[in-house]
Design a protein around this nucleic acid. Structure first.
Length: 205
DNA sequence: CAATAGATCATCT
DNA sequence: GATGATCTATTGC
């Protein structure tokens, strides 16, 4: 049972518009819900963001940037709209979107997408053959592998280029559910995980 | 179904 | 030298 694209590349570009830099210029807890429903593209593959977590920089012990500026966290201290990509558990890449103004190291972790175009390419990259849509990119490590996002994309400009985020001309209507974040040890009760409510492609139902 | 072990390495202490 | 913003396979109920 091969997965079929919901849209082709032309239709996707026709129905979406680029995001300007100032779209990203807000605190992470406001950017995260705003990114739900937006489309993340890389080359011939793309998916709609359905789950994201906010990390609030210096005021958030769970955030990498809370312990200050290092070689790894440098990009978060710069202007918004750039990619913060890092390796976790020795094997998975995680994609974050830098939020807020220069000097304020907020970011949003993209945790799940609904695959829209290039599904066959994504399935091949993940060696995924179950034919079930939800499992293809419902997790931070799964989506980066499906979209071939790696550490070389650290610092990529997400407003343009091959790795980028666009917004629907007609933004979809949906409820947002907010829960605590996944997999962290500090600030575990903070409700900073934003989910497209009842969407099948969210991680950890 | 839920719980858990193991894989694996850049980054920071 | 320890530690993860994870995933998968496997075990056990």
């Amino acid at each position: 049972m091969p997965l079929t694209d919901k849209l082709n590349q032309r239709q996707l570009l026709q129905h979406t518009v680029p995001l300007a830099r100032d779209f990203f210029d807000r605190p992470a807890d406001q950017l995260a819900p705003a990114l739900l429903g937006c489309v993340l593209l890389h080359g011939k593959t793309a998916g709609m963001i359905v789950e994201a977590e906010a990390y609030l920089g210096l005021t958030d012990v769970a955030a990498h940037a809370s312990r200050g500026l290092t070689e790894r966290t440098r990009i978060m201290f710069g202007p918004p709209g750039y990619a913060y990509v890092y390796l976790i558990y020795g094997m998975h890449q995680c994609l974050n979107v830098v939020a807020a103004k220069e000097g304020i190291p907020h970011c949003v972790l993209i945790r799940a997408i609904e695959p829209l175009t290039g599904l066959a390419i994504m399935a091949e990259r993940r060696r995924y053959s179950s034919g079930l849509l939800p499992g293809l990119a419902n997790g931070p490590g799964k989506l980066t592998q499906a979209l071939a996002i790696e550490r070389k994309h650290y610092g990529a400009d997400l407003t343009k280029g091959t790795l980028r985020i666009r917004q629907w001309h007609d933004h979809p209507n949906f409820d947002i559910e907010i829960t605590p974040r996944i997999g962290i040890k500090d600030n575990i009760d903070w409700p900073m995980r934003f989910i497209w409510a009842r969407h099948p492609c969210v991680s950890r139902r």
